[in-house]
Write a protein that binds this DNA or RNA. Structure first.
Lengths: 126, 126
DNA sequence: TAATTGTTATACTATTAATATAACAGATAA
DNA sequence: TTATCTGTTATATTAATAGTATAACAATTA
């Protein structure tokens, strides 16, 4: 599980970190129960601050991706990630809608959009 | 063309404004060449500051959705919105990828995801 | 001449992102 | 016992962004 950060990006560091861990779980590079580095170890490894890693971990915990034991450390949720519920579908729609609106304006067909999504799904099913 | 803002939202006001104008173009509620309110008029109408509207307009201009004539006002691009190019496809992928990664983690199948996209596309082709 | 247009400039408040230290409490290893 | 490591909490600072508030400018139009 490699993590690469773009410190010049407009995307906050903690968001990049969150998304890469989520991608790692989706690609099964990270398995349920598997340990993640401590906040201090990962911060040192990535050359960033302890609190930036902690912010990413706290949000991942809040969303059910990981568990944090006070003295044992951080692990990928052994029970798996909570399944999509109605709230998640609503939030997902709200995130995708502006992307589709812009695509429609720019002449992207539904088939082209679906093909792009298909290719991205394939990245997670290797 | 109705615009509704959620001043409590974490989404910046100028972003909400941008997205609703883009959605208006996608739904053909706004046609090429059609005039938009002046920055002052729209700001007064929405109860927000002139500069917030101006920021949205400037970004829409930068991305080719609208034209701004110094004394004539603001119009939807009469030549239509620039078609998707390689850069746009790359940016679109980067925005969709984390959404798909999270969906995969939460047990959403590709078919379910595609169906959601299909329904959203349908909103723009009524 | 007066009003309206986009534009620019300055200033201020509030929030967020990121960093820097420091300390605490509980568990574990020497 | 002591030292170390864990997540956690607290405080402080810097930088950037979002939003607002005025004010003024230049060009067009009524």
């Amino acid at each position: 599980m490699f993590i690469t950060l773009d410190l010049e990006s407009e995307e906050p560091i903690y968001t990049q970190l969150k998304n890469q861990i989520i991608a790692g779980i989706a690609k099964k590079e990270l398995s349920p129960g598997e340990a993640l580095p401590s906040v201090r170890a990962l911060a040192a490894d990535l050359g960033i601050n302890l609190h930036t890693v902690n912010k990413a971990y706290q949000q991942l915990k809040q969303e059910g991706f990981i568990l944090i034991h006070r003295q044992k450390g951080v692990v990928i949720n052994p029970d798996g990630v909570p399944k999509a519920d109605a709230v998640y579908w609503t939030e997902l729609s709200a995130k995708i809608r502006p992307l589709i609106a812009e695509s429609v304006c720019k002449g992207v067909s539904e088939a082209e959009f679906q093909e792009l999504c298909h290719q991205i799904f394939a990245e997670f099913y290797q």
